[in-house]
Amino acid sequence: MKENEQHILSYKTLALVLAALLVLTGLTIGVSYVHMGILNVPIALAIASTKVSFVLLYFMHLKFEGRAIKISFLCTICFLAIMISFTFWDVAYR
C-alpha cells in the first residue's frame, strides 16, 4: 500500500488557495476597468493562468503527482501552445 499512499491536503491549505483565487478574481475585474490599450489582454490572461496554476497544483494536486501525470500534462500544454501559436502566425501574417 505504501506506493499508493497519497498526500492529504489540509483544510487550511485549501482555504488559502481559495482566498488567493478570489483575490485574483477581484484583481482581474479591477484591472479590466483600467484602460491600458494592448496590454489589457495579456494581463487578463496572465492572471487567469495564475489562477489556473493554483487550481491545478493544489485542488487537482498536480504538485503531489508522480512523473507520468506531470510530464503528460506538460506535453498537453505544449501541444496546446503549438496549436494556438501556429494558427495565430498564419492569421496574423496572412
Binding site: I8, L9, S10, Y11, L14, A15, V17, L18, V55, F59
Partner: peptide, 9 residues
C-alpha cells in the same frame, strides 16, 4: 471547487 477538494480531505 474548494468544497469538492475539501470533501476528499
Amino acid at each position: 471547487s474548494f468544497t469538492v477538494a475539501a470533501s476528499i480531505t
